[in-house]
């Protein structure tokens, strides 16, 4: 209980800090802000070592051994376990339709989808959409703040770390885990499966990136920022204003001007 209280307190603290810079437009971060880069690089290095010893081999094994239907089922399961949070955050973002859709998905997939292992809702034309509290904050104009590489979890920023804490506290499963061993087992199992699934889902691309990049840390940092921007605007194309801003420090206009000089 103490951990939850502490987490809530921290989340509330950084929330009040973050909301100070809120605006009316959804936030789109346009450049990397990494004031604690030396620390982040160390954590990045440790994460890489842990990954290399544990998660990477597990994901490679999973990739090569598990048949496709198993992988599809695991993906459905880890998505389904997240649906209550997707629904909750869609509601907070003032999108009751999406909240209802996520909730509907949760009910359908948990029952006729057999505990979420089958994504029948998608077959019925209700697509999956991930919404977390970091996105909710961004929806109300809160920028990412300083980049943070979290131990074990990886790339994040102050806003999304706060989001993680809020999502943890708000997650019905973590409430259940307080009182029930079954819920706790389900929660821990879902974390393990999520880690395996997401590592597997990115394995080829990250291998490629690691091989081709000159500064893997910086490339990941940039991709994390852009990926969050895309999730925040729910995959819609960037608005004209954000297009101009996306490279605020040096944009294409500057480059064109430079080339013509």
């Amino acid at each position: 209980m103490k951990f939850r209280a502490l987490l809530s307190l921290c989340a509330a603290g950084s929330l009040s800090l973050l909301t100070a810079c809120a605006s009316t437009e959804p936030a789109q971060d346009t450049s990397d802000f990494d004031p604690i880069e030396p620390v982040n690089r160390v954590v990045h290095g440790i994460n890489g070592a842990v990954d290399f010893m544990v998660l990477y081999p597990a994901a490679m094994w999973y990739r090569d051994i598990a048949p496709e239907p198993v992988k599809t089922s695991v993906e459905s399961f880890v998505r389904n376990i997240n649906e209550p949070l997707n629904s909750f955050n869609a509601l907070l973002q003032g999108d009751p339709e999406q909240a209802a859709a996520s909730f509907q998905r949760f009910i359908m997939n948990s029952t006729i989808g057999l505990l979420g292992f089958n994504d029948v809702a998608s077959d019925f034309g209700i697509p999956y959409r991930r919404e977390d509290f970091g996105q909710t904050l961004a929806h109300y104009g809160i920028g990412g703040g300083p980049y943070i590489v979290l131990p074990l979890i990886g790339p994040s920023n102050l806003r999304d770390t706060t989001g993680l804490a809020v999502d943890y506290v708000a997650n019905p499963l973590t409430w259940g885990a307080e009182n029930s061993d079954t819920a706790e087992a389900l929660y821990l199992g879902s974390i393990g499966l999520s880690a395996l699934h997401y590592r597997y889902a990115t394995i080829n691309q990250l291998n490629e990136l690691q091989k081709s990049s000159i500064d893997y840390y910086a490339a990941l940092r940039s991709l994390y920022r852009q990926q969050r921007n895309t999730l925040i605007r729910n995959g819609a194309p960037a608005p004209a204003t954000a297009v101009e801003d996306e490279s605020a420090s040096f944009d294409f206009d500057d480059a064109v001007e430079a080339a013509s000089e």
């Binding site: 000159i214 910086a218 852009q226 895309t230 490279s247």
Partner: peptide
């Protein structure tokens, strides 16, 4: 999928 190659490359190169 919303990830700009130019921006990714710029962020990496300027970091180097």
């Amino acid at each position: 999928e919303g990830l700009s190659m130019g921006i990714t490359q710029r962020d990496e190169f300027t970091s180097v």
